[in-house]
């Protein structure tokens, strides 16, 4: 890619952060976001000029999210990364973290459904591109996303309505 990397950061950093939050939850999302953009920066000059940058970044974020989850499962989260992790309560005093309940509802979904909802509905990628990231067919990705949304309508939206009406 001949264009400045910063354009990709400016344009896609917010959506990639929301994707990371949707897939990993708000706390691990920061590390996944940082790893995603560091890795993307490294690879940027070799990316073809006509690449779909958002889809590529979401693909990188998907791999980094898997790494974060694996590190967690092994209990091998690098110690030096912990103090850097912002505490949400400190960063937004008196304000609830955006969409906390939404991400909590997503966390309860099976991981394939959660990924398909995140990459299609949060990142806005077509089902075919979601399938290229998570594996399987576009039809299967569409079904996983639909199943996830159906569950969220029961678990999240009913709660939403009851608290806001």
């Amino acid at each position: 890619m001949k264009h400045p990397f910063d354009q990709a950061v400016a344009e896609h950093s917010a959506v990639v952060l929301r994707v990371c939050r949707a897939v990993l939850g708000p706390v691990e999302a920061d590390d996944a976001w940082s790893e995603t953009f560091l890795s993307a920066l490294r690879a940027w000059p070799d990316l073809p000029d006509d690449a779909n940058v958002r889809a590529w970044l979401v693909t990188v974020a998907h791999r980094k999210a898997i790494d974060v989850r694996r590190a967690q499962a092994r209990g091998a989260v690098p110690v030096e990364s912990l103090p850097d992790r912002p505490s949400w309560g400190d960063e937004q005093p008196g304000a609830a973290l955006p969409d906390t309940e939404l991400w909590a509802a997503l966390a309860a979904l099976p991981s394939k459904q959660r990924q398909c909802v995140a990459y299609h509905h949060v990142a806005g990628l077509p089902h075919a591109e979601v399938a290229a990231i998570v594996g399987g067919t576009a039809a299967a990705s569409r079904r996983s996303a639909a199943d996830g949304i159906a569950t969220l309508r029961r678990t999240y939206l009913t709660k939403e309505v009851s608290t806001h009406v």
Partner: peptide
Amino acid sequence: LIEQLAAPRPADAGAVAGAVAAL
């Protein structure tokens, strides 16, 4: 639900922008 997945609520946009700036 679909709208909230696609973009933060307008009231939350500032918090997301702040988090992105720090990152």
